[in-house]
Simulated scan of single mutants.
Amino acid sequence: MDAAAPGDLIPVQSSATARPAPLPGLLSQTREQDPYELYRRLREDHPLVYDPSIGAWLLSRYADVAAALRDPRLVDGRRPGDRACGRHRGAVPQAMQEVVERTSYVLAHRIARREQADLVEEFCRWLPTGALGGRGRRAPAVGPAGRCVAQLSVREMALASFFANVLDHPDRIAALRSVPGLIGRAWQESLRRDPPVLVVVRRASIEVRVSGGTIPAGATVACLIGAAGRDPDRFREPDLFDLTREDAGQLTYGPGDCPAVELAALEAEHGLSALFGAMPRLRWADGFRPTATGLLTRSPRSLLVRPCG
């Protein structure tokens, strides 16, 4: 391997005579920096690279990440919806669905007459808790999907990014108000473009070939969800939030029927519908624009709105 400065990424050995300049490791950035330029350079020049800052091999291309997340040779750290969730398959119970709808309504109407409110503090952080019957933010791993449902922080961040994407353009607001059936598509598009979890970790039980080389047996593998979701080889205009996108493909949740996956989508649907219903003129507070932060997880830390318009 080439020599690299401390914290630099270390590319796999190659026979090429010309090699791209080394890149800084994931954790060398600040949480305020936008990671997507680094992700672009990784996809193009370093599809498999070792990052000493986290002690893991990085995968950044959609095809590699999507395959790794379902590869039985890459074990541990399963997402809600993966095969490991099979023991708690099934639909979200009707009683829990009603709690989500009722909690959304109550939270929205609490802030509807305010001059200004923060949707992260006053909505996103309370709606997932409400789905667990108000047990609190440190709720035990109980319910139809066990620990998957109890992963509150992921759903909180996903909701914050979802609201940020929807409310950031008047055409999106108008489209979703007039056609509520588009909310599910908007939710999937937000998970693709702005996933709450940027990095999902796996461990290679044996050597695994990927597009950039071979992952050694026993190695830790960091699947860069954030990079894969904006891969231009998989998505048309990947940086664009597109309600009509036909090439959807989010990686935050797995493809299985774990109730936690449905629950998150229900929170997005009922949450946005409740906000729209309680606040016909909902818009950003004067001078505010949402800004996401974070290196391993990422979402806006505040969403300041004027509920009364």
Rank of each mutant, 00 (worst) to 15 (best):
A4D: 00
A5I: 00
S14Q: 04
T17C: 03
P24M: 01
G25R: 04
L26F: 02
S28Y: 00
T30M: 04
D34Y: 04
L38A: 11
L38I: 01
R41N: 13
D45W: 05
L48A: 05
L48F: 04
S53D: 11
W57A: 07
A66S: 06
G77K: 03
G86N: 06
R89H: 03
P93R: 02
E101Y: 01
E101F: 02
S104R: 08
Y105R: 15
R113F: 09
T129I: 14
G130E: 11
A131I: 01
A141Q: 15
G146D: 08
R147S: 14
L152P: 04
S161P: 03
F162R: 12
F163E: 11
L167M: 15
D168N: 15
A174R: 15
A175F: 08
G184Y: 09
R193P: 02
P195L: 09
R203S: 06
A204I: 03
R209A: 14
I215S: 08
T220L: 11
A227N: 02
A228I: 01
G229W: 04
P232T: 14
P232M: 11
L240K: 12
L243I: 12
T244F: 14
E246M: 11
D247V: 11
D257H: 00
L263F: 13
L263Y: 13
E267S: 07
A268Y: 12
A285Y: 09
P290C: 04
G294K: 06
R298D: 10
L303P: 09
G309S: 03
